[in-house]
Every structure is written in structure tokens, then in C-alpha cells.
Simulated assay, not measured.
Amino acid sequence: MKNLSLYITIISLLSIAFIFSSCSTVRDVTERGPAEPESPDEVLATEEARALQQLLDETRSTLADLEESDQIEVPNLFKQEASSNSAVSGNPYQGYRIQLISTRDVQEADTMSNQFLEWVESEAFGYRPEAYVFFKQPYYRVHVGDFQSKSRAADFTRLIKQKYPGAWVVPDRIVPANVPPDDVTFSTEKDTTGS
């Protein structure tokens, strides 16, 4: 009996000590405030990342246009398209979409998506693409369309660059049911009436 009460007392004291040590650890962290960068190298790396992102945002459309017109040589290792039709290569869900915007503001992404759908309705394209808003940290991205071949996506990109000059083709997971049939040509009602 004596041993049992001794064990209970020891366990109680250890539990109380553990609780107090846990509370003091939490208090120390909250009293210190937000973490500061530890070294100048981390600050430099963050600034370099911002500068690189800005450069990429400024040149993305230009680089996509050069690649599309075959003025820039992309090594075969980096080309994702093994054949002109991804369904032939075995995965009907692997394809391409067109990215309109990449932003940290979800409302801006939703607005861009809605404006694009309204614009497509008013232009009466031969194909009505879906607009997809998704989050890939740290950005919200708006992708439109579902294409199994990069060349079909590039054809449609030429049309939407009238309104969205920064649009560019990106590899993406697609919805095969939303892929336009091969006999659909991409043009606006204005293109067919000649005005």
C-alpha cells in the first residue's frame, strides 16, 4: 500500500512539473513576437526570388510567343508532349490549358474568370471553354480550356490574346469531356462575317 501511494505521488509531481514546463515554453515563444530573418543571406534570397518572379511576369508572354513560333530552341528533355495527342500516349487527363493570370488575390482571380466567361459568350467562339480557378501556393491561377494537344491550345491562345495579351499555354490536368472536337475551328463571329 505504501508503495502504491508513493508511485501516485511521484506521478502526480511529474505531471505537474510537465504542465508547468509546457506553459512556460509557450509563454516564451509568444513573448518573443514574430520571427525575424536570421541572416543577411536569407534577406538576399528573398529579394532575389522577388526579382526573379517580377522578371518572369514581365517576360512570360514574350517567351511563350517565341517558343510558339519556334524562334527559341527548347531541349527535347523539357518538352512534355511525346506525341500530338496525349490520349495516344496513355493518359487522357494529361493535356494543356491556357493561363490568364497568377495572383495572390482570390477576388481578382474570380473576377478574371467571370470576365473571361462573359467575354467568350459575347464573342461567340466556335468553342466555349471552361474557366478554372485553383490555388497553388502562393498563387491563385486562372486556367481556361481543355486541350489534349499543345498545338490546339496555341491556336486558341492566339484568339484570346486579343483580350488577354498575357495568356500562355501551360501543361495541366484536363477534363477529357470538355476537349473540343477536332473538327471545331477557333474563330470569332466577327472573323466569319468579315467585319
Score class of each variant (00 low, 15 high):
residue 29 V to F: 01
residue 85 N to W: 08
residue 100 L to W: 01
residue 80 Q to C: 11
residue 25 T to Q: 09
residue 94 Q to H: 12
residue 72 I to C: 04
residue 9 T to R: 07
residue 81 E to R: 09
residue 81 E to L: 09
residue 89 S to R: 09
residue 23 C to Q: 08
residue 7 Y to L: 14
residue 90 G to S: 13
residue 70 D to G: 11
residue 60 R to V: 11
residue 117 L to M: 15
residue 14 L to D: 08
residue 82 A to Y: 10
residue 12 S to T: 03
residue 25 T to D: 15
residue 100 L to R: 10
residue 17 A to R: 02
residue 9 T to G: 03
residue 95 G to M: 00
residue 47 E to K: 10
residue 6 L to P: 05
residue 80 Q to Y: 08
residue 39 S to K: 03
residue 45 A to C: 07
residue 26 V to K: 01
residue 37 P to Y: 15
residue 119 W to L: 12
residue 46 T to I: 15
residue 65 D to R: 01
residue 58 E to R: 13
residue 56 L to W: 07
residue 36 E to H: 09
residue 64 A to C: 07
residue 74 V to T: 00
residue 104 R to C: 02
residue 103 T to K: 02
residue 29 V to W: 05
residue 86 S to M: 04
residue 29 V to K: 10
residue 18 F to E: 13
residue 36 E to C: 05
residue 105 D to W: 02
residue 64 A to P: 00
residue 66 L to R: 04
residue 43 V to H: 00
residue 33 G to N: 03
residue 109 A to W: 06
residue 5 S to M: 11
residue 12 S to F: 00
residue 49 A to Q: 14
residue 71 Q to W: 09
residue 49 A to G: 13
residue 104 R to Q: 11
residue 89 S to Q: 09
residue 64 A to S: 14
residue 20 F to S: 15
residue 44 L to E: 14
residue 28 D to L: 06
residue 66 L to I: 05
residue 96 Y to K: 00
residue 24 S to L: 07
residue 64 A to K: 04
residue 89 S to D: 10
residue 71 Q to F: 13
residue 61 S to N: 07
residue 87 A to N: 08
residue 91 N to E: 02
residue 101 I to C: 10
residue 76 N to F: 02
residue 74 V to K: 00
residue 106 V to I: 15
residue 54 Q to S: 11
residue 4 L to P: 00
residue 65 D to T: 05
residue 79 K to I: 03
residue 33 G to Q: 06
residue 43 V to K: 03
residue 86 S to P: 04
residue 90 G to H: 10
residue 52 L to K: 06
residue 52 L to M: 13
residue 52 L to E: 07
residue 72 I to Y: 02
residue 49 A to K: 14
residue 43 V to L: 11
residue 90 G to E: 09
residue 102 S to L: 02
residue 104 R to V: 09
residue 84 S to H: 13
residue 113 S to V: 04
residue 7 Y to M: 14
residue 23 C to V: 14
residue 63 L to Q: 04
residue 75 P to Y: 04
residue 15 S to Y: 06
residue 42 E to D: 12
residue 114 N to Q: 11
residue 25 T to G: 11
residue 86 S to A: 06
residue 46 T to M: 13
residue 74 V to E: 03
residue 112 M to H: 10
residue 16 I to G: 01
residue 97 R to H: 05
residue 113 S to T: 08
residue 11 I to L: 04
residue 115 Q to D: 15
residue 105 D to M: 07
residue 61 S to P: 11
residue 27 R to G: 00
residue 99 Q to H: 00
residue 96 Y to W: 07
residue 73 E to V: 08
residue 57 D to R: 03
residue 26 V to L: 07
residue 91 N to G: 02
residue 60 R to I: 05
residue 81 E to H: 13
residue 83 S to Q: 08
residue 5 S to E: 04
residue 97 R to Y: 00
residue 29 V to Q: 01
